[in-house]
Design a protein around this nucleic acid. Structure first.
Lengths: 220, 220
DNA sequence: CCTACCGATCGGTAGG
DNA sequence: CCTACCGATCGGTAGG
């Protein structure tokens, strides 16, 4: 499924528009502003408790005008949740591909996992909490993506165990633990806080490797 | 705050009631049934998307009759969320008190954490996802309880580091990781599945100790 | 992008 | 514990 996050080039950069009188000039990336407002509100109040009027208010328009940018409140949610799932999947794929050593693959996959959950904390938060608010076929699509995401990390763990690099009794449970630990970041991480995204990613990857029985590299 | 989970002795065991005709005899623990139905529905559909009629339907009564057992839908939610917070706090307190060795305190606290999130998976799930749906003063009360819960585990970790039993760069982040890892269990654990609660609790406690730099006990 | 407005849903109450 | 019903909220549409 293609990412639903691109505003589309047709909405901007189209010079030569006649200077007709307009009460409120359309901001070129109004669609993106609406999406961002929805992310914040859905994260803070939940999808169901957020009204279209509130979303509009955040970007200085009326509720019904939101429908100029999204077909429905549902589509807005789907854009956010599906988008986040794709972001995670892409980051994970790139991470695993960037190394051949399982230990390094695991480390980078966890770092990517944590980084996305920190950098896109609110989106990721909405993406996991509001799956149930998604109508079909989006819900099933996202569940499939998440299952694939989990499976891929699990495979890295299993490969490491097979190669004798990792040592855990249950690769599956260990993978769940690692994933949930990282996903939890979306619930409390705030940019500008005491820890940076990178520090957090590095630290959590180290914790994950420890969970898998890998000795921490001796510090010099 | 006192637990809100007791049906109260006045609702049962009161013999000598005249055998008047009744269309639907009140089940002695109807209140508990209503609560259980609400837990399932809130977990599956979310608080906002669950109607009082649905809750009633699950126990064979009409929506308005739910108000014979709970003052409002809000009170039903508060009962669940506050109850779970108290359950966790109590289990953690008992766990930490049951040992003097930090390593053992940590192990038991994590086991308790995981066991509650497995045994009361749906309640714990609702308890963490629907905090935002809670009205004041319940919301603040629960947030305080959760903060205390987190702080207590963090203290065990910090004590272990101070004593040289644990070795982690950031006790705070490690504690978050451990807590989120265990809380995640509520999202996927199903009784009767491939792993038992005890196996899971034991395994996760072992993972937590590894995260803290404790060598796994050599298996004979 | 706006105002006016429709239709459906739903928590809660009245009064048995 | 039930039926009848009120009142408020809200997503979405009409028609500029």
């Amino acid at each position: 499924m293609a990412s639903m996050r691109e505003p589309g080039p047709s909405l901007r950069g189209r010079g030569g528009r006649p200077a007709l009188p307009r009460r409120t000039p359309a901001a070129p990336d109004r669609r993106e502003q609406v999406r961002a407002a929805a992310v914040e509100l859905f994260a803070a109040q939940g999808y169901r408790d957020t009204t279209v009027d509130q979303i509009g208010e955040r970007v200085g328009i009326r509720g019904p005008s939101v429908y100029k940018h999204f077909r429905s409140k549902q589509e807005l949610l789907a854009d956010i949740v599906v988008g986040t799932a794709d972001l995670l999947l892409g980051a994970q794929r790139a991470a695993v591909r960037s190394a051949t050593d399982v230990r390094e693959q695991l480390r980078r996959a966890v770092e990517a996992h944590v980084r996305v959950h920190a950098e896109h904390a609110r989106e990721a938060f909405v993406g996991s909490r509001e799956i149930g608010s998604l109508a079909e076929p989006h819900r099933s699509a996202v569940l499939r993506k998440r299952a694939e995401y989990d499976r891929r990390l699990r495979r890295v763990v299993e490969t490491g165990v097979r190669e004798g690099v990792f040592a855990v009794d249950s690769p599956r449970l260990a993978a769940y633990g690692i994933l949930d630990m990282g996903a939890g970041v979306a619930g409390w991480f705030r940019p500008g806080g005491p820890v940076s995204q990178d520090e957090l990613a590095t630290f959590y990857a180290e914790l994950a490797l420890r969970m898998l029985g890998v000795r921490p590299a001796r510090k010099r």
